[in-house]
Design a protein around this nucleic acid. Sequence first.
DNA 1: CCATTAACATAAGTAGTACTTATCCCATGC
DNA 2: GCATGGGATAAGTACTACTTATGTTAATGG
Lengths: 297, 297
Amino acid sequence: MLMGSELPPLQWLVVFEAAARLLSFTAAAHELGTTQPAVSQQIRALEKSLGVALFERIYRGVVLTDAGHILLKTTQSSLRDLREVLQKIKQKSAPRRITVVTDFAFAAFYLMPRLPEFRGLHKEIDIRIQTSQSGTDLPSMDSDVAILFGEGGYQGYRSEKLLSEKVYPVCSPKLFEEFSGFTVLTDMVKAPLLKLNADISQKWMDWEQLFHLHGAQWQPSDSVMEFDNYTLLVQAAISGQGIGLGWSPLLDDYIKSGVLVALPHFTVESNNGYHIVQSNHHVPSDSTKAFLDWLKA
Amino acid sequence: MLMGSELPPLQWLVVFEAAARLLSFTAAAHELGTTQPAVSQQIRALEKSLGVALFERIYRGVVLTDAGHILLKTTQSSLRDLREVLQKIKQKSAPRRITVVTDFAFAAFYLMPRLPEFRGLHKEIDIRIQTSQSGTDLPSMDSDVAILFGEGGYQGYRSEKLLSEKVYPVCSPKLFEEFSGFTVLTDMVKAPLLKLNADISQKWMDWEQLFHLHGAQWQPSDSVMEFDNYTLLVQAAISGQGIGLGWSPLLDDYIKSGVLVALPHFTVESNNGYHIVQSNHHVPSDSTKAFLDWLKA
DNA sequence: CCATTAACATAAGTAGTACTTATCCCATGC
DNA sequence: GCATGGGATAAGTACTACTTATGTTAATGG
């Protein structure tokens, strides 16, 4: 008997993959160098262990059920990954593709603009960026390295601080002139404040904390615009709709090019920041090391 | 004997994973409900079939070799994926996480800004965006859906046009005033033209084609700035450094908010565009369908 | 310095699984 | 209504892989 959470014999999945791809038990048997009854029996066993039909038996052939389709997709990608890595190990060649997991803001404002530079240095390495809304879902990430915002110290992972959180208000040059610079904090409420929606911003600094750190009291006023997304907030700031919070160095390029103006008087820092997070159990490949060296430089 | 490209018995990998995780054959045997020699033999067989040592035998235990580390990473993620999907199928529950593969520009300018809206509609679905520099590497993508730029008609895939390529020059409002609008094409060479580096732009329209389609001759001049990355080019356009090419609707938000001004006289369209690409063999899940319906609306 | 211990390796017998061969069954098409 | 081509079933067999028993190794302690 099979235990609930245990895997069935994985050979069954190899047989299933061939049969599902070819939509024929006979053809699958031929490809696998075995016989049709062997395939038939293994598929039957797999279906029994799952309690779900994977194929519908039709006249002269089979078609996949919904469950079969779902299983095929994952089976193919997993088997392909395994085949690939086993091949690589046989040839003793290092992996050339690295996957980086991070959040939308870091990907869009920091990583993507800089990646071509890395590509210039290491043409042979292909970087895949993976972003997810459920940002810190560490256990399910099958990445070489993650770059996550937080306090650091992730259980079961090595983490290293890449950037400390450093926040300053930013606005368009036009708005900056209009108010002839903002010299005291209370000036700022004259302009609309651009704010990230609470469940998006997660651990990021918000206006309330910034005011508090400067010894001022934040009072929610009408002149606040909420955004679901940092990209949209930055766009609004650029177009002069209000004052946003800028993370250094995410927005450095925008400030350098004059699209945004920083109000450095009101800069605040915290113990949070972006961390390079890697699994304890994995030794980084040479490609990963090259990427991290470049990132830290 | 084992054929070159074939997989070894996958049970070996399950045993390997346990042994590598626990760094003990005895403990792995205990976890798997078997005996230490069984583990020892399977590891030996796996190492023999790969021709590489996976463990280094040290006093009272084992440690992973480099090859062992590499194999562990992929093995863990693949086995986790398989366990997950088999569990899901047993419970007859639909997948709730979908992975979208696309290019940097589409991700940064179109998808990411709009995703919070989708999240509002479907809180239970977690969207993962995966971008890669080797954009159209279709066979190796294990995604639910890809959104790729090109002509459509990918071998072995269903594709459906999402957006037609529609390009117009864009610049900052300031530059636009400065030249009191650009009314004829040749006006445009007065300002610096922002250009994507050839090996990045791939199939995208470039200035040469745009001039050609308007019956004008493009002559490379000094007033051209090259960029490795569309994000950087757009930043330069926003900050008034020159005229860039804007893809509709990627930059619509910027134009709507007044950060950029479009020069619609010179709009050109092509048969290229962004296509929704899905594998022929996979039936989209309900989550995927919901995402695609939202995307097309 | 030798005995003990705790890890993995090896060897050989055994048990159980899974493959093969042969046959059956069913739906279609001529 | 018979031939065809696909999968299902059944039973014997062969082979794989597990178990038990023993060997090997290296560090520790008396």
